[in-house]
């Protein structure tokens, strides 16, 4: 029997360490994924909320921005944009309102999750103000007008002439009842 190299006990210890390490790595993939998506604006995740680019408007170019809304399963609010689309010049800050109405007879909390298509344009779409940064609480029967203010980066690739901003509205009433500090988690 060979005993050069590691003894079985220390070999097993190292292998177990590898197991624990890979288990941790699985969880590490979560922040890695978020960082990658943020950094490259992939998967329609829009880049950070604050934008410090100069207000240099590219008057030569016009971009069409479309707005789409949908409700996640079980969400009963009516929800949609005031305008379905607008034309704008890259660099120009614009505000669009979304309308929401709670037709139920209970207080509800909603969270909107944005996504931009095509996904390679997501990194060039900057929201300076958005109802999706926070959650909305609506009383029974209440309606609300919710603004999103954004700038399309003049560095947007030339062949992109149309962008779609899509929101999915989720009912988070129950989760919020359980833990009230989740709001801090999503800021994009």
């Amino acid at each position: 029997m060979k005993t050069e190299g590691l003894s079985t006990a220390s070999l097993v210890k190292r292998l177990l360490l590898l197991v624990v390490g890979m288990f941790a790595f699985g969880f590490l993939l979560v922040p890695i994924y978020d960082v990658m998506c943020q950094a490259f604006g992939i998967n329609g995740k829009t880049a950070g909320s604050v934008w410090q680019g100069q207000e240099q408007v590219d008057m030569q170019r016009e971009v069409r921005v479309q707005f789409v809304s949908s409700n996640a399963e079980g969400m009963r609010w009516s929800f949609g944009p005031e305008d379905n689309e607008i034309m704008l010049h890259p660099g120009e800050a614009r505000t669009v309102n979304f309308l929401a109405h709670n037709p139920t007879d209970r207080v509800m909390v909603a969270q909107a999750i944005p996504s931009v298509a095509p996904s390679r344009a997501a990194a060039f779409f900057h929201k300076t103000e958005c109802f999706c940064f926070t959650q909305q609480v609506l009383q029974p029967g209440e309606s609300i007008e919710m603004p999103v203010r954004f700038v399309v980066d003049p560095a947007l690739p030339n062949d992109v002439r149309r962008l779609t901003l899509a929101y999915t509205l989720f009912d988070v009433t129950e989760r919020m009842a359980a833990s009230l500090d989740l709001a801090a988690v999503h800021t994009n």
Binding site: V30, N43, A72, F170, L182
Partner: peptide, 16 residues
Amino acid sequence: AAGGGDPVLFQHIFWF
């Protein structure tokens, strides 16, 4: 997604 997560993340971890 409602809580800030992402279903596509599942697929990345699963296929890894």
